[in-house]
Amino acid sequence: MNKSYAEQFYYLMKLGRVFEQRAKEEYMKGNIAGFLHLAIGEEAVHVGASLGFGKGDFFVHYREHVWALARGMEPKYVMAELFGKITGVSKGKGGSMHLYDPKYNFYGGNAIVGAQIPHAVGAAYARKLRGDKSGVMVAFGDGATNAGNFYESINLAALWKVPVLFLCENNRYAIGTHISRASALTDLYMKAKDYMPAVQVDGMDVFAVFEAVKQAKEYIQTEGKPYFVEALTYRYEPHSMSDTNVYRPQKEMEIMKSKDPIQLLKDRALKEGLLTEDFIRYVDDKVLQEVEEAVEFALKSPEPGLDELYKDVFCEVCTDVVS
């Protein structure tokens, strides 16, 4: 691992953490409405996988803020979307669960659990037909692996031999249900191993996630076939802002917080000379400023007009659509 990647890891993970902490504050103030699902604790998966995969299409779940930032979206436009403003990445129509920007091949969050998985297989099939080897990555939680469309998707991906990386973020809880109460297999990569190469990785270690996804990307590009990665991670916040979080043992929380992915990154990178204390202080200050500017931008941005209700509903440039 080189210094450049370590610096990118720290910046993006710290940006994601501070962005979400600030989003939580704004939600409590009433500036963000609807649902808000935070990925605090899971930053290593989102950042490591984003940088490890590189070019290609991204389909992710509704816990997506850090994914979007790691993909390259500007914090102010993401925050504006959370605020429901016209300057947001989805013009204020999507909110927290539906960030979208085709410039980054980011096809965003999906509010239906697992619905993005067949979408990703379809996109990978399209890339195969076009001779494009960049491939597709789809991220989903452990709960999604119990749905029928998950099994249908890995079956078709293997049958059609399409370049798609299935990335399961196993944070052990589907809303408030522990994995042991919902899945006969708790090592979730085992669900895919008979269809494609499947591995399990420490999702609290950004270096490990990066390497696993990088290897998976090389495989789907060279072989043109699917690959499965299970990242063992943990969310420190409740499932959503409306969740009381009473179902998790306090001891479990303490153990997992001792494995904070940002602290683990700092400890290793400082020890190996990949980061310096001066760089860390610089990034910490930079991130605080960027997030505060994002909040100010969102607060000052206008809300969508009523005419926006009728925009982007039908394709206005398509010739093969019956209106």
Rank of each mutant, 00 (worst) to 15 (best):
F9R: 08
Y10G: 03
R17E: 13
E20R: 10
Q21H: 10
I32P: 14
G34Y: 13
G34K: 06
L38C: 07
L38G: 06
A39P: 01
V47L: 00
G56F: 01
D57G: 04
F58H: 09
H61F: 14
Y62G: 07
R63H: 11
R63G: 04
E64W: 00
H65F: 02
V66D: 03
G72I: 04
E74R: 07
P75W: 00
E81R: 06
I86Y: 09
G88K: 10
K91D: 14
K91F: 14
K91P: 06
G92F: 05
G92A: 09
K93D: 13
M97K: 12
M97Q: 12
L99K: 07
Y100E: 01
F106S: 06
I112A: 04
I112P: 13
V113W: 13
V113Y: 09
G114W: 12
H119C: 09
A124N: 03
A124G: 09
Y125K: 06
A126F: 15
R127M: 14
R130T: 01
G131C: 10
G131F: 06
D132A: 04
K133V: 14
V136S: 07
V138I: 02
D142M: 12
N146P: 05
A147S: 14
N149C: 13
Y151I: 03
E152D: 07
L156C: 12
A158W: 03
L167P: 02
C168W: 00
N171E: 02
Y173M: 06
A174K: 06
H178D: 13
H178R: 13
A182V: 10
L188I: 15
Y189S: 15
K191H: 05
D194Q: 11
M196C: 03
P197G: 04
A198M: 03
V199D: 01
M204C: 02
F210E: 03
F210S: 04
A216I: 10
Y219H: 15
Q221E: 15
T222E: 15
E223N: 11
K225P: 04
K225R: 14
L232Y: 01
T233N: 10
Y236C: 01
E237H: 04
P238V: 03
H239A: 01
S242W: 08
P249G: 06
E254P: 03
D260E: 12
P261Q: 11
K266W: 04
K266H: 01
D267W: 00
G273K: 09
G273D: 08
I280N: 11
I280L: 14
V283D: 09
V283W: 11
K286S: 14
E292V: 00
A298C: 08
P302K: 05
D307T: 13
L309H: 12
K311W: 11
V313E: 13
C318G: 04
S323G: 13
